[in-house]
């Protein structure tokens, strides 16, 4: 009974731990990474106490490793996550995420008159500003910002 916390979110042998996810972004992160299509063991926790975020979420994936470019996609909703790579119960690598320069099919364009909203064309954006986030639509050239960003579900 030394550490009850371990029972809540147990350690994994090999895999990836994504920590410091803002609690309200957890399900978006799950969606962006397409975790509902993975057959490996996955443990989620949400509304855990965090000094930094107030309420945080955490995801532990057993036997799953991501490419950096896939991890970077979650930076749009969870820019400050900490990603730990676990091998044999040890953290062997720590990663941070960065919003990619080009973003495809992940975010909805804010402009209702845009071809991506009118004819179901897959969205494409260029990152024009990081703080605050600004994405310029490749088609209609309008800027979608953090305050009006809608993530397109992977399904």
């Amino acid at each position: 009974m030394k550490d009850r916390k371990q029972l809540v979110v147990s350690a994994i042998k090999d895999g990836t731990v994504i920590d410091h996810i803002p609690a309200k972004a957890l399900f978006k992160v799950i969606d962006i990474l397409g975790l509902d299509h993975i057959e490996n063991q996955i443990t989620f926790g949400t509304n855990l106490d965090s000094k930094k975020l107030g309420k945080k979420g955490i995801i532990k994936l057993s036997g799953v490793f991501f490419r950096q470019e896939d991890l970077d996609r979650i930076a749009l909703v969870a820019p400050d996550v900490k990603v730990n790579i676990i091998k044999d119960y040890e953290v062997v690598d720590k990663k941070v995420v960065e919003i990619p320069e080009k973003i495809q099919g992940l975010v909805k364009c804010v402009n209702p008159m845009c071809i991506t909203n009118q004819e179901g064309v897959r969205t494409k954006f260029d990152l024009v500003s990081r703080h605050p986030v600004g994405l310029r639509c490749h088609y209609c050239e309008k800027i979608t910002g953090a305050n009006n960003m809608v993530i397109i579900s992977s399904r």
């Binding site: 402009n111 008159m113 845009c114 071809i115 004819e119 639509c137 490749h138 088609y139 209609c140 309008k142």
Partner: peptide, 9 residues
Amino acid sequence: HPVEGSARW
């Protein structure tokens, strides 16, 4: 075309 971005597409 009236739709924005239609020409790029």
